[in-house]
Design a binder for these strands. Structure first.
Length: 838
DNA sequence: GCACTTCATGTTTTT
DNA sequence: CATGAAGTGC
């Protein structure tokens, strides 16, 4: 269908009889909420469309409305629309918003999801075409690395010189480009000591044997299937009548091929993206994909969303000024109707510590309104850093002054040790042939099964061509294992087989009947002939047995939550953490509870496992206390905050040296896009800062203000005066580790355009008094509050006693973690943390 | 199998 | 510096 037919359809609707039009008119009222560009993007339903949506221009709105419109105009049924995103979060948001638009929850949009989840679904349907079974396991990075390690060792390569992690990176890179082992270009053959390709092939074989795939395979296998099975591809081309892609600038080659294959027939593909926000080049994203769209799909409609609903004109102008330095952009001009607002604020500091201190104070002051600004809640503020190690300075500072903060993007829930262990048990209960899971938990908790015992199991399994669990069973039966390990292993195997039995017989009437009979049998036992003491014991035993059987019965009737609890209990895993005395143990138990709770949302254990491997959700948004957010620029993409702090704008840190070294101009351009993303996160107040000196890796390092600062258009920037400019502020002697002044570095700082501008501008305005530092007072109090012998609590190290005081640092002998030096702000009095004093 | 040491390493991260 | 991984000795 061409766009002409589309218009005709609307004219036809206009000519409809009134009654019919009334029906059609109501559901399209959502169109009235759109600006002209958005409306065009929604109404250009047929043929290829590229929606270039700048930051904050209502792209999700356009995308979701477009889907609603496709459904409303009857062009496609919900299950005929393929809508892909990169993250589960984005997919979820789209689902809810479509639901809101349609005035109901959208049932049956089965093909709205992440690239990976959609591919997993497709691959489960057609697994046999790539020699897999449809119940294949999806390995995460950890499993992947362990498997690669085995592959490397098997190939007699020194794992120390050639680490598995590195190989994982190389293979990932190849998979991102959709290269199967036989398709890796010759130019790459030197990779990994010339063994890369061979190891890649061996790894793929190993995966096949294990009936497993890694994340890259999900896409790669599906692309392979489409490329080699025309009939299959045709079927899906016809099925997915409309395709929508979010964040198109982030697609890698494999994803691009996948989309091209699927859209190849009708070409009803709508890609939404912003070339200026492409910040994932380092993990395979190709900005080229979006730049090439019109060449790939001749006659494509290109629509630019340029009206920004997020930021003030000054902020937009600053962002535009920076990004303008990039070459080869598709080009957009963001504009807004918002009031002028505050200029982007720029401030230089003497060192990183002062920068953190200043931001802390500023955040605190802004809660009450300062510098003529309205008051802001801490929830409205975010600090966006280039690299996660920069967060430390802020955490240190905020702990000291007790400023509540939250760090976004820490270790992921499903990546935590205890969660992965528990998941391995679940995986084994569902599929006993999952060797990787078995390896993970044979000796967790400790069962006295060390290296040699595990090797024996491996040998036995390999000799008989059976999975490890079966190998272990054979080993026990043949008495090939002695000592304490044998009994423990037997217990584990028995546990595994009983859990597996429960999984297999879920809902099985014969199994349920026989369990019921067994319970009845136990209940009818007559102990009256026994003497008192023995009878009591027998009755207790019976009661315990019945409890267990009833639990089994509940599980057979579908209670998979009890199954999970049973597994964690019987395996001794829960107990393992209960006995653990490290300060982390309670948290881990808490996480396990959380995991079990997460099961509630699923039909059964299998369903849970299938989905969990694709969901790396980190959304444990505790409501309540107001907190300032700290996160990386990458993590901030897609978010917005009234107040944004962008610290660390120094050459070498941002743009990062490594990025410039490795990717040269391309690297700088990606960093610049990162700067653009950072600035455009701000709605009202954006504060950029840099420090002349930073304590990095045990050394003082001086740096020039970031080149991006020079790119900020002056008219939209206000320079704030650093605190204490006269007393050792910016421009004072650079501290060095040796105490010798680094004159060269200082000269550079003075000559940088950023510094010159900063200096000339701050000369024009009256110097603000260095603020009286409230924090110093708090610091002093914190130190004074403790003395030798004070009992304290530290969130990471647990309880301890103060054995020494040095300035604002305390030397503490922790009960579990030994003696450490800690900034006073890190600890609280032990009583306050709930320790009962003697 | 565990506690201690040395040693390298030191962006961005989703699925 | 500071952290984690891997190696050493008991």
């Amino acid at each position: 269908m061409s766009p002409i037919d589309d218009t005709d359809a609307f004219e036809a609707a206009a000519r409809m009889p009134l009654s019919a039009r009334a029906m059609a008119a109501r559901p399209t009222s959502y169109l009235d909420d759109l600006n002209p560009a958005q409306r065009q993007a929604v109404e250009a339903l047929d043929g290829p469309v590229l929606m270039l949506a700048g930051a904050g221009t209502g792209k999700t709105k356009a995308l979701t409305t477009r889907i609603a419109h496709l459904l409303n105009t009857g062009r496609a049924r919900p299950n005929e629309i393929l809508a892909v995103t990169f993250t589960n979060k984005a997919a979820r948001e789209m689902k809810t918003r479509i639901g809101t638009l349609m005035g109901q929850t959208v049932e049956g949009m089965p093909w709205l999801g992440t690239f990976h989840s959609i591919c997993a679904k497709l691959l489960r349907r057609h697994a046999e075409l790539v020699e897999l079974k449809s119940n294949f396991t999806i390995l995460d990075t950890d499993d992947q690395v362990r498997l690669l390690k085995q592959t490397i060792v098997a190939a007699n390569i020194d794992e120390k010189r050639w680490p598995a992690r590195q190989l994982a990176g190389i293979i990932d890179h190849w998979k991102n480009r959709a290269w199967t082992p036989d398709a890796v270009p010759v130019a790459e053959s030197a990779a990994f000591d010339g063994q890369g390709v061979a190891l890649y092939a061996a790894y793929q074989d190993r995966l096949k044997t294990l009936n497993a795939v890694d994340f890259g395979d999900l896409l790669l296998h599906v692309v392979t299937i489409f490329q080699t099975h025309d009939d299959m591809l045709d079927q899906y081309r016809r099925w997915f009548r409309y395709i929508l892609v979010d964040e198109y600038q982030d697609t890698n080659v494999a994803q691009y091929l996948w989309l091209r294959l699927l859209a190849g027939g009708h070409k009803n593909i709508c890609c939404v993206g912003d070339d200026d926000q492409s910040i994932y080049g380092w993990r395979g994203a190709e900005v080229g994909n979006i730049l090439r769209f019109e060449a790939d799909f001749p006659g494509a409609t290109v629509i630019r969303l340029e009206q920004n609903y997020r930021s003030t004109p000054h902020i937009l102008a600053a962002a535009s000024g920076v990004i303008a330095a990039n070459k080869g952009r598709l080009g957009k001009t963001l504009w807004t109707e918002a009031e002028e607002g505050e200029k982007v604020r720029l401030i230089g500091h003497w060192d990183g510590e002062e920068e953190a201190r200043w931001i802390g104070e500023e955040a605190e002051a802004m809660q009450g309104g300062t510098r003529g600004l309205r008051p802001y809640s801490l929830d409205d503020m975010a600090i966006l850093v280039r690299a996660s190690h920069q967060m430390r300075a802020f955490e240190d500072r905020f702990l000291t002054i007790r400023l509540p903060y939250r760090v976004i993007g820490g270790p992921r829930f499903y990546e935590r040790m205890e969660i992965r262990d528990a998941m391995a048990y679940f995986r084994l209960a569902v599929s006993p042939e999952d060797d990787l899971a078995f390896e993970r938990i044979v000796n967790t908790p400790k069962r006295g099964l060390g290296d040699k015992a595990q090797q024996k199991i491996q040998q036995m399994a390999r000799a008989n061509g059976v999975p490890l669990v079966e190998g272990a069973r054979l080993l026990i039966e043949t008495g090939g294992l002695g000592g304490k390990g044998a009994g423990e292993l037997r217990k584990l195997i028995e546990g595994l087989s009983s859990w597996n039995w429960l999984v297999r017989n879920r809902g099985s009437q014969p199994a349920i009947k026989s369990l019921e009979a067994e319970i009845l049998g136990l209940e009818s036992l007559d102990f009256s002939n026994l003497e008192n003491e023995k009878r009591e014991k027998a009755e207790q035993e019976r009661a315990a047995q019945i409890t267990v059987l009833e639990l089994h019965l509940a599980i057979l009737n579908g209670d998979h939550i009890s199954l999970a609890e049973l597994i964690l209990d019987e395996s001794g895993y829960t107990e393992h953490w209960q006995n653990d005395k490290t300060p982390e143990a309670p948290g881990r138990l808490e996480n396990l509870k959380e995991l079990v709770k997460a099961l509630e949302g699923f039909e059964n254990l299998q369903g849970f496992l299938e989905h969990v491997s694709l969901i790396m959700d980190n959304e444990t948004e505790e409501a309540g206390a107001k907190k300032i957010s700290i996160m990386t620029l990458h993590a901030a993409k897609g978010l917005e905050f009234p107040v944004v702090f962008l610290p660390g704008w120094e050459d070498g840190l941002f743009p990062s040296q490594r990025s410039m070294d490795e990717s040269g101009l391309k690297g700088v351009e990606e960093e610049r896009r990162l700067a653009y993303v950072g600035i455009t996160r701000a709605e009202e107040v954006c504060t950029i800062s840099f420090a002349a000196n930073r304590w990095v890796y045990g050394q003082w390092q001086s740096a020039m203000p970031s080149r991006f600062i020079d790119e900020l258009p002056e008219a939209h920037v206000e320079v704030l005066t650093p605190p204490g400019l006269y007393g050792g502020g910016y421009g004072a002697a650079a501290p060095t580790a040796t105490g010798i002044e680094d004159r060269a570095a200082r000269a550079d700082v003075y000559n940088s355009p950023g510094w010159k501008r900063l200096q000339s501008r701050s000369a024009q305005r009256p110097m603000s008094q260095p603020r009286e530092s409230r924090n110093m007072v708090i610091d002093a109090q914190a130190v004074v509050a403790y003395q030798q012998g004070s009992r304290v609590f530290h969130t990471k190290f647990g309880y301890g006693a103060v054995v020494g005081i040095e300035g604002d640092k305390l030397e503490i002998a922790f009960d579990k973690a030994g003696v450490k030096k800690v900034v006073a702000g890190f600890v609280v009095p032990a009583e306050q943390a709930g320790e009962v004093p003697f």
